[in-house]
Design a protein around this nucleic acid. Sequence first.
RNA 1: GCGGGGGUACCCAAGCGGUCAAAGGGGCUAGGCUUAGGACCUAGUGGUUUAGUACCUUCGCAGGUUCGAAUCCUGCCCCCCGCACCA
Length: 949
Amino acid sequence: MDSEKFKDIEKKWQKRWDEAGIFEADADKDREKFFLAHAYPYPSGPTHHGHARAYLFDDAIARYKRMKGFNVLYPMGWHCTGNPAMIKAEKIRKGDRDTIDKLKEAGVPEREVKKLKDPYRYVRFFATESDLSYKNCLKTVGCSIDWRREFMTIDDTYKKFIQWQYSRLRKLGYVQQKEYPVIWCPEQEMPLGDNDVEDESQGAEAEEYVAYKFMVEEDGEEILLPAATLRPETIYGVTNMFLNPGLDYVVADVGNERWLLSQEAYEKMGYQREDVSLVEEFSVEDIIGKYCKNPVTEKDIIILPADFVKGDSATGVVMSVPAHAPYDHIAIKELKKREDVLKKYNIDTKDLDFDYISLIDLEGYGKYPAVEIADEMGIEDMNEERLEEATKEVYRKEFHKGTLSENTGYPGKKIDEIKDKVKEDMLARDLAEIYYDTNKPIVCKCGAMGVVKLVDDQWFLRYSDREWKDISLDLLNRATVIPDKYRKELNYYLDEWMGDKPCARKKTLGTELPFDKNWMVEPLSDSTVYMAYYTIAKTINQKKIEAEDLDSSVFDYVFWGKGDPKKCKMEEDVLGEMREEFLYWYPIDMRIAGTEHLSNHLSFMIFHHAALFDEDRWPRGITIHGMVLDENGNKVSASKGNGYSMKEIAKGGVVDAMRIGMYAKSSPWDDIKFGKKEVDRTIENVSSRFQKMVRYVDMVKEAPEGKEDVFDRWIVSKMHRHIKKTEDAMERLELMEAVNHSFYGAFNDIKKYINKKDSPNRKVLEEVIGIWIRILAPFAPHLCEELWEKIGGEGFVSVAEWPRSDSDAIDRVAEKEVELGDMVEDDIREIKDITGMDRLEQIRIVVSAEWKWKMRTAVEEGKDLSELMEKDMFRRQGKVAARYFQELKEEHQIEELMDVDEELQALEEMKGRFEETFGAKVVIEREEESQEDKAAKARPGKPAIVLKD
RNA sequence: GCGGGGGUACCCAAGCGGUCAAAGGGGCUAGGCUUAGGACCUAGUGGUUUAGUACCUUCGCAGGUUCGAAUCCUGCCCCCCGCACCA
């Protein structure tokens, strides 16, 4: 069978499954249910084989559970709320070449590209409406989804569900409004997450600077120099001020004060407070060389020129603490050498001879750690790259180990403990203000430069709430987490890491907050309890329920059983059906998501379920999937083009082989290296096994009826073990292990069976193949469906009953016999190799003497030598017996073996096999009867072998 | 920095106190099959050694616990992932 044939098989069975609706699941009180849901995908672009892996994990579970008799609900929806599609659509509208070319490259037809400037069209296109879509991806790889429950998060009906959720959360007191600094795109007027900014800006964050108000008098007017620092405690060590005469500065009214700011800082400040207005441009050359007053120590310090001060970072006003900041130290050192500069600003060299002020005691260092570390690292000038490193080093050490000195307001206090207190005190005394800036320049994907905006009415979810955390932890404790190692991480996120989270934004695709229509629910926050929506989505879709009929009273009734169903704008039986479906399917049994979702989607899911649902509706299981990397360890992604597109997969007839490859590569939660080359190789390899499998299946019909021998008993036994092992692995979701048994293990054993037997026994082969097809069906469903039909299996194998592992069919003796046979065969071969005999005349296999068996048992029972030697049977053997006794003693565990007669019989059964393999006559005899010297080498379970050529 | 996970033979990857010189897959080597190649089958794949045995060295590095450690403990080195308002 070639891949063309496989392709037909895929399409054929996908169509039949669809037509028969076998994956459609309805509430059925007589059957036990299993409800699993994967994180619904965000349709941001074309799909590739990396996406497929995640869903194939679910599919194998769903299929396995179905065969185990569960009524399985496996639904899928589309997460369309959020910004990426909006940004992409906007770029297309603007005619951005790069975006458009990439889409074309990915296979989006020319005339379709233009239409994608509509974000709604964009998400639909990539969710469901093209062969590049996620839906097509899932269908291509054969996911057994109940498509009647499909929805998009931009559906009006879904929005009603979100509004219900938020109005209820607010009633519970978990939603709150407060001030919040966000990274903001002034162009698009919306906050920026990491996904919204260019790569080089990723990981940026808003930093909170404390701007100390130093005062200088200029033309009889007080101007404040807001020196921004991340280390407010160092205010006690300021020796001078740095301004950059090469920058544009302005004087601005800030509140009722007059501030000096860099041009950029002035502009940015407008996003953080409203009472800022421009007074005039200002040349700082006028005040360089003058003195200004430290607001805390009230010391006068000199203002020095510094070209390292940047205008786009913080305020453009920098206070200098040379004792503890290497930059400042080096800058002063350098300036001392620059006579031309000093002269220009009329600065006397004596003015630079101030002493550094130490304010932090740090073990292992003297008064000026910054100087010491700079010297140690050999840093001479401002261009030195390692200056940054030195700064971090000083900062880290002082922060963790340093204490404030006597000359500060907080003598003896540890920096890491007092830092916030210093800030609060200074703010309270009005000596400083907060100013936010980003820690690196932010370039929005739209091209604009990002700023920090202070939003004063941001809506938050109060994840910091202790009580809420506690019930969430309770939920986690009751749930299964697979693998359990992620429980720790989740626990940490829930218990400690999570703080209040902004849950709404002004502009995005999504749902309006029901109590404040200016805000849209932020896209991570509308994806928390949507699994409950699947239970009713079928009814909503089929009965074409309108959004306006889905007011909160409906959800109160369906999810909580509260309120009067008669008051809902809905027919009672429709409402009843939704209620019934919810009660039947909920809670969710297994929620699947990627590792990157532990700290958001999964944590939020836990919080929201804990808040909104009773304990008996709490999620029961959580599991994690890893991602697919290419050969260089990079994530496979559409933009990198390092993955196979679903279009390519769909035409290849390679789905089942790819599935097996992915499952077998490693545990589902680990990342796999599975680049294109590897995919090719794996597919080729697995496909060739598939072809052999097909051949084995074909052999069933031709196989003769025959008498059962040891190999028949052996293969049946092995297959029953594979059932059991696959089952055990599946219960732990260890797909790799499951596939190792159901595919590779079964394959190798069946191959061996067919090779060792002259002709396989029909009845046995039939049973074996029947088992094999079924235990492989969750992993290679299309092929198994085809083979199932071929052997005349009833109905679809996808919903066939999982084979029972029958303990009676496990035949330990047969297994032992075959193992013995293998071992003897190996030994014969080895001796043959060592002796260099190429043609054997005769092989004598000598089974160990009976007394050796007896002694084994005796030793196992703990008898000692003298006790044993009292018996004739052993005493007759003399020294040999004593030596064998020692030998046995040295074994730690005595392996369970057949007895003498069984071993003899087993070898008799294997005789034909040995004769055939080695082309020699085989004689089997007992040690007691043997004439051979080497017979004495025989041991129980290890007969002696004598070769003659 | 905080939190989590890892380092296993040529490569990927299991194992997580004795049955471990270490599953499985790939690669490689030899033999068979074949007109030849591919595919397929069979065997081998740390070292020394041997009529099928035995011994030595090996699971990031260094110590420790134990009759016994890839597996447990301690320290060190290195790698990966997440750190939010973004899906």
